[in-house]
Write a protein that binds this DNA or RNA. Sequence first.
DNA 1: GCATTAGTACGTACCGGTCAGTAACATTGT
DNA 2: ACAATGTTACTGACCGGTACGTACTAATGC
Lengths: 198, 198
Amino acid sequence: MTKKAEKPAEAPVRAADRIRASASELFYREGIRAVGVDEVVDRAGVTKPSLYRSFASKDDLAAAYLRDYDLSFWENFERPGGKTYSNARDHVLAYISQLASRAVAKGYRGCGLSNAAVEYPSRDNPARQVAEAHKKVFRKRLRELAAGMGARQPNVLGDALLLLIEGIYVTGQQSEDGPAQSAVAAAKLLIDASVKAG
Amino acid sequence: MTKKAEKPAEAPVRAADRIRASASELFYREGIRAVGVDEVVDRAGVTKPSLYRSFASKDDLAAAYLRDYDLSFWENFERPGGKTYSNARDHVLAYISQLASRAVAKGYRGCGLSNAAVEYPSRDNPARQVAEAHKKVFRKRLRELAAGMGARQPNVLGDALLLLIEGIYVTGQQSEDGPAQSAVAAAKLLIDASVKAG
DNA sequence: GCATTAGTACGTACCGGTCAGTAACATTGT
DNA sequence: ACAATGTTACTGACCGGTACGTACTAATGC
């Protein structure tokens, strides 16, 4: 028999990790308020005290879910479709294109962070704070990319793209076959009109 | 004493109406799931049985709230700022301008109908059904107005404007001083690029 | 070598509170 | 009279959260 390595491959899969995964799935699909902690732990195959050993409260778990969401959001945003882009225009259009096709698919539920901000209007909610912080960074990044495109008013173009993207998030979950179909065309229009000499 | 007219000025203010008003305020500001029926009746100055004499359930009350919301939405949309517009471009820009300034103000909470769709992802929820129906009509109306502007692809422009507007709704409640500031400029860019000969 | 101890990771069972909704009856105004 | 509303009290389900017991492992003492 080989003796065990330091931290062996067959990890025990900590209860906290199972809870994070379960919470992510449920909170995203059904909303945070709609899901009780019992449902989270049941699906994770663990028990409630395990949840409260790793998370101070349901709000805290929700915040953790959104931090995870934020992480995977950026992975996807910076490499849309798994590709890296050096051209800002191509980069943004690739993201929007990929997003738009997800948004018209069945069962799409928009942006977990935006949804959380809708569910929790109070500023001192931990989940909302994660969402607000994320959106601030996202806005800055889009303005940066807009500048990279050579826009005359990069802040206006960045904001316009943000409005468009948030529009995709929210309308995508209202109906299939929604306005997200036109998003790429709209973005091109917006970018070209902002960049052209005028 | 003068005897009362048919429907006199000093209306008795039915319990159902007080409940509708109270529910509208609370559901809009804090979200539907966040508000209990007790809070609704307390604020209305009535009692719970009165609620359930006029509404079959909380879901039913939520749907009524959204129907009211839909009504006042259209009043505002068709006469933004109290003015009537015959020019489609002016009309849409006036609506967006008026919306954008509300959206950057403190305490803005977005579109009650969109928010409800976020809170209730399940298609068979009565509140969501009202929201979905409304959005379908709104989309049609925007495409109509885009056609009225002489857009080459009215459906694309209409959808683009819808995405922009929904973006204002949702970002407006995430932060003051948000991207809605750039909404009018973005809309102009979008419209002009869609209408110009090409 | 083997019991003792400590620490970790987890489950069982339960708490008090709040939720939506209701039953039965009293009160009011016209 | 009768229709609309208030009063009171209740239900059963569910909610977030916790006190407490238990299995397993690793280190320690002798």
